[in-house]
Amino acid sequence: MMTNLFSIFDPSTNLFNLSLNWLSTFLGLCFIPYSFWMIPNRQFILWNLIINKLHLEFKNLLGPQSSSGSTFIFISLFSFILFNNFLGLFPYIFTSTSHLTISLSISLSMWLSFMFYGWINNTQHMFIHMIPQGTPSILMPFMVLIETISNIIRPGTLAVRLTANMIAGHLLLTLLSSTGINMPNYLVILLIFVQILLLTLEMAVAVIQSYVIAILSTLYSSEVN
């Protein structure tokens, strides 16, 4: 019996004190051999089309001064989050992106790398970015403080956004499924239909959240150049 509603997010399955639930994070490695097939399948062709579209969009956001191949960092980020979001929709598979351990590690490491690169190589640009053009002199100290705070909380907002969206959908699905035991048969059919609609919504959320995280990371990266 479930003693805590949030226990569905606990990585409790273990063998020899190793948490096996986290192994689902690395299942995406099984799809890498598709790229080495002599005749590509339809899945690989579709994924190539998505990657090319993302590459063009990220290239426009980063600007012409971006380094060659820098878009693949954000394409890899999108792919990793998307795959783990979708894995969580399957039964008995742990959703790693519903934990701040994963989401905060990704966002904080990327944000720190952007900050180190910006302050070391483009120090003057980073100082200029703190004060928007046309700001009155009396408001400049407040604008620096506001911009500094908004910059510091960026990794936290990225991580919490992803984690909260993943947790909210899974909790709703769990709550509705737990009420089906005491329902009459005609309401169970309605409940199954609602669950299918929610599962479709969760699939859309999985795509949207991975896209949002990748786009915001791209925008944060373009600000330090």
Rank of each mutant, 00 (worst) to 15 (best):
M1A: 02
M1S: 09
M2V: 12
T3I: 10
N4S: 04
I8H: 00
F9H: 07
D10W: 04
F16I: 13
F16T: 09
F16N: 15
N17Q: 14
N17K: 15
S19T: 12
N21R: 09
L23R: 02
S24Y: 02
L27P: 01
P33V: 01
S35C: 14
I39T: 05
P40I: 03
R42T: 12
Q43F: 13
W47Y: 14
L49V: 12
I50T: 07
I51M: 11
K53G: 06
H55M: 12
F58N: 11
K59I: 00
N60E: 11
L61Y: 06
G63P: 15
S67Q: 13
G69P: 14
F72P: 13
F72E: 03
I73S: 14
F74L: 15
F74H: 07
S79G: 05
S79I: 13
L82F: 12
L82Q: 07
N84G: 03
N85M: 03
L87R: 11
L89V: 01
L89C: 00
F90C: 04
Y92D: 04
I93S: 03
T97E: 02
T97L: 08
S98Q: 13
S98D: 05
I106L: 14
S107Y: 01
S107Q: 10
W111Y: 11
W111V: 09
M115T: 03
H125G: 14
M126L: 09
M126K: 13
P132Y: 12
Q133T: 09
Q133Y: 06
P136M: 04
S137Q: 15
L139D: 13
L139T: 00
F142L: 15
V144T: 00
E147Q: 12
N151Y: 08
I152V: 01
R154C: 01
R154A: 04
L158W: 13
L158H: 11
A159G: 06
T163Q: 10
T163R: 09
M166W: 00
I167R: 08
G169W: 09
L171T: 00
L172D: 05
L173K: 05
L175Y: 06
L175W: 02
I181S: 01
M183G: 01
M183F: 05
Y186N: 03
Y186D: 11
I189E: 08
L190N: 11
F193Y: 08
V194I: 12
Q195P: 04
I196H: 11
T200L: 10
T200H: 05
M203D: 00
V205R: 04
I208V: 06
Y211N: 03
Y211T: 07
V212S: 00
I213C: 03
A214L: 02
S221M: 06
V224C: 09
